[in-house]
Design a protein around this nucleic acid. Structure first.
Lengths: 245, 245
DNA sequence: GTGGGTATTTTGATCATACCAAAAATGGCC
DNA sequence: GGCCATTTTTGGTATGATCAAAATACCCAC
């Protein structure tokens, strides 16, 4: 009478699969509540143990939003949800210097390509958005918190230009990863002004349709930024070489 | 005697947190097996229900690898694990044409940047690896399955060149996403030959240290490839406009 | 004693049942 | 019709049992 799976596959996996199907097929539309566990139990002929395991699995895969005491809600995820889930995992890497460095480098690498793209293919609306973002950026120089927001917004425009929904999602993910440590980052109006000037240089290169100059300006900008990010991930003062001489 | 959490937090969450700490702190070193459920049960004063829930949660977050009947193994995740988890989610987007297009476009975008990088900064060893990959690619032209493997390998070299561990992980993720549909993709020795020629053109541009030519060649190559990928994601013939005139 | 095969123990997977508390549904009151 | 008390539903957790596969201990032959 046992319906146990004796192969290398959990019983919950089969249920996950079937529920997945119902979600992507639209049988369980977005934002609707999942049937109660006891119903699913009868429906799939499994114990609540298995049903619950399947639900948590779906939840961790982003197909279901499962607040503690509430009915699980079907969520057809977008790229944001996907990258959000990724963020939780990558977060663990952020404790290790190498991981952060790799992450930040990947950002530099991507944004270098983005500014090239911008220099070559930015449309009138993109240019306009960049101009506005830069203006907001300048206006916020005295206020570091606001500057940070406008800084993020400026870069966000770059991610919009390729018109690929994945790009903004990636940007949001980067921002989310780094935001955790923002409060530990050094910041000051002087520093803000430097960053503003970098943004300005980048935009000028884009306006001149000079991808190489734009790429170089951005690389310089982000490599400088890295110095300020890096320190926040170096908790213990390993070497006091230039400490108090 | 009940240790039930009555707030908006599951009991499992606390355990997840504590186990997380043990993992990142190194108390539970990488690759070691987790203690048996019954031990953890006693240790945390929770029922197996909760322990198991915590374990599956850790597992879905990539901190633990748990094959069906084996002891869960601690895994300080790398970027591969992260992107692997992401893959499961993104997979759902692959059913929708827009999602696939966006994904493929992002790949083109990234690889364009990669070949530029290669043209500018490829080292002797990278060049050698590319040459070898190309040779293997040519040799495999008659055998489509083998050709596919060498095709992937050729592109993989490009992802190695920036020396950023995230890049190869991204590549593997792309490959995994697309591999699911490989059996539906059209393939033939003629097609293989065309692809081989594309690879050859790309490598030549890299050898000449000409990033623009390399980028153009790669874009052309992948845009052509997209045509072959696209059809596999268009199940129903929605419009027969150019069907049988 | 060592390799290989077998018996035993451990342990993960699943089921069944029960209870509690919070959420949701119900119904009656103003 | 809207608001509040009551009942029902439902998710969270606990306990105990069973089974099969994995891990381990054991044994035997060479």
């Amino acid at each position: 009478m046992d319906a146990r799976i004796s192969s290398g596959r959990r019983a919950a996996d089969a249920i996950v699969e079937r529920l997945e199907l119902r979600i992507v097929s639209g049988e369980l539309p977005d934002r609707t509540a999942l049937p109660p566990e006891r119903v699913l139990m009868a429906e799939f002929g499994a114990s609540r143990t298995v049903i619950r395991e399947a639900i948590t699995a779906l939840s961790s895969r982003g197909l279901i939003e499962n607040r503690p005491r509430y009915r699980p809600i079907v969520r057809k995820p977008g790229f944001d949800a996907a990258l959000g889930a990724l963020g939780g995992i990558v977060g663990h890497l952020l404790g290790e210097a190498e991981g952060v460095k790799a992450l930040f480098d990947s950002r530099i690498f991507l944004e270098r390509a983005l500014v090239r793209e911008a220099a070559m293919h930015a449309r009138r609306a993109d240019i306009q958005a960049l101009r506005e973002a830069l203006a907001a950026n300048e206006a916020a120089i005295p206020d570091s918190a606001r500057f940070y927001a406008t800084d993020v917004a400026f870069h966000a425009v770059l991610y919009e230009i390729p018109r690929n929904p994945i790009m903004p999602a990636i940007h949001r993910a980067y921002v989310a990863w780094l935001a955790v440590h923002w409060h530990r980052m050094l910041r000051s109006p002087e520093r803000n002004r430097v960053n503003y000037q970098s943004h300005r240089t980048i935009l000028e290169a884009i306006l001149e349709r000079d991808p190489d100059a734009a790429e170089a300006a951005l690389a310089s900008h982000l490599n400088a930024a890295w110095e300020y990010v890096r320190v926040t991930f170096e908790p213990a003062p390993e070497r006091t070489e230039a400490g108090q001489p």
